[in-house]
Nucleic acid binder design. Structure first.
Length: 346
DNA sequence: CCTTATGATTCTTG
DNA sequence: CAAGAATCATAAGG
């Protein structure tokens, strides 16, 4: 490894060590060796000559019949040295960090297909529009607008980088190809150079992705903060929730499945359903009188619904909803523990 | 403005 | 851990 000379098949390298004189003076009868020695001598001393002289010599050498062979050998040597220097670190695996960034950008809808395509928000909005929806879309629009702004910046920047990278690559490639006429450059070397350029540019791209991710995160947190601000559920959602509440007044504790169902119907989250029922129960219990009207209304409503349904089937009456029929105040089971209420209303 | 309604949060409790 | 209870913060209506 330390001495290329030992390497078989590379007689030129020995000459490279500098002892031309021996080779030339030896005159062993091998004309070709002499020839090569001459050439090398000319090359080695070219810098000592005057400019004109050197130019002429260069031209002569360039046209020499041995030039391609010499270049080939030099290329080979270069190849080997370069490989030995950093052959190991070649081909790093796809960066985990980069993949994470890519995934996030994709998930966030920044790098995905066109606007409104794959983003979770869009999907949620679409799902909502099936049920009640259209309420949070106003809230989303701001978020969506800013997101698409980020997206646009991201894409134009990315494109710019891409273009610059391509331009630079072709430029370097042309340069190297051009230079390969005057100095030994193997195609592999060009390839390597290209990959180096690509690496540099992709690291810039990564920075872009990183900062885009940060921007999205910031936007997201601000959006979530905005969502912290209380927004009333839309009419239909409260309708559905109230319907359930008053038709299960004796036991207004929806099961997990029921909550999920309600959440889906109202396009809110399960925990929002839980919150709603928590609030509703306590507030109902605290002041039943205030809710009487509402209770009667929903009772009538569910009764109508039941009637409509039973007109299809043959359900006479459902014991779970024996309500209404006037203004009788019923005290649900779940209110009993409070004696005050009992006293107040019974 | 002030009041009320209402969704969310926090703490307590069983 | 879920329900209850108190409380907070904002929306909505007068």
């Amino acid at each position: 490894m330390e001495s290329w000379g030992e390497n078989g098949g590379l007689p030129l390298v020995r000459g490279d060590e500098g002892h031309m004189q021996e080779g030339a003076g030896g005159a062993d009868g091998d004309g070709r060796k002499q020839d090569i020695g001459d050439i090398l001598q000319q090359i080695m001393t070219i810098t000592d000559q005057s400019l004109d002289e050197a130019q002429a010599r260069k031209h002569a050498l360039n046209c020499h019949r041995m030039k391609p062979a010499l270049f080939n050998v030099l290329c080979e040597i270069k190849e080997k040295t370069v490989l030995s220097i950093r052959g190991a670190q070649e081909e790093e695996p796809p960066d985990a960090q980069l993949m994470r960034l890519d995934n996030m950008l994709l998930a966030e809808g920044v790098s995905g297909p066109e606007k409104g395509g794959g983003s979770a928000a869009a999907a949620a909005a679409a799902a909502a529009s099936g049920g009640a929806g259209a309420d949070n879309s106003a809230e989303h629009s701001d978020y969506r607008a800013k997101l698409s702004q980020i997206r646009q910046i991201y894409h134009t920047e990315l494109e710019k980088y891409e273009q610059a990278c391509n331009e630079f690559t072709t430029h370097v490639m042309n340069l190297l190809r051009e230079q390969s006429r005057t100095r030994p450059i193997s195609p592999k070397e060009i390839e390597r150079m290209v990959s180096i350029i690509h690496r540099k540019f992709s690291s810039i791209q990564m920075q872009l992705k990183q900062s885009t991710c940060e921007a999205v995160m910031i936007l997201r947190s601000r959006f979530l903060d905005a969502r912290r601000k209380r927004r009333n559920f839309n009419k239909q959602a409260t309708e559905i929730l109230n319907e359930y509440f008053y038709s299960h007044l004796s036991n207004p504790y929806p099961s997990e499945e029921a909550k999920e169902e309600l959440a889906k119907k109202c396009s809110i989250t399960v925990s929002q359903v839980s919150n709603w029922f928590g609030n509703k129960r306590i507030r109902y219990k605290k002041n039943i009188g205030k809710f009487q009207e509402e209770a009667n209304m929903y009772a009538a409503k569910t009764a109508v619904n039941a009637a409509n349904v039973s007109s299809h089937g043959s359900q006479a009456n459902s014991p779970s909803t024996p309500n209404s029929a006037g203004e009788k105040i019923q005290l649900p089971d779940f209110c009993y523990p409070n004696p005050l209420v009992d006293q107040d209303l019974c």
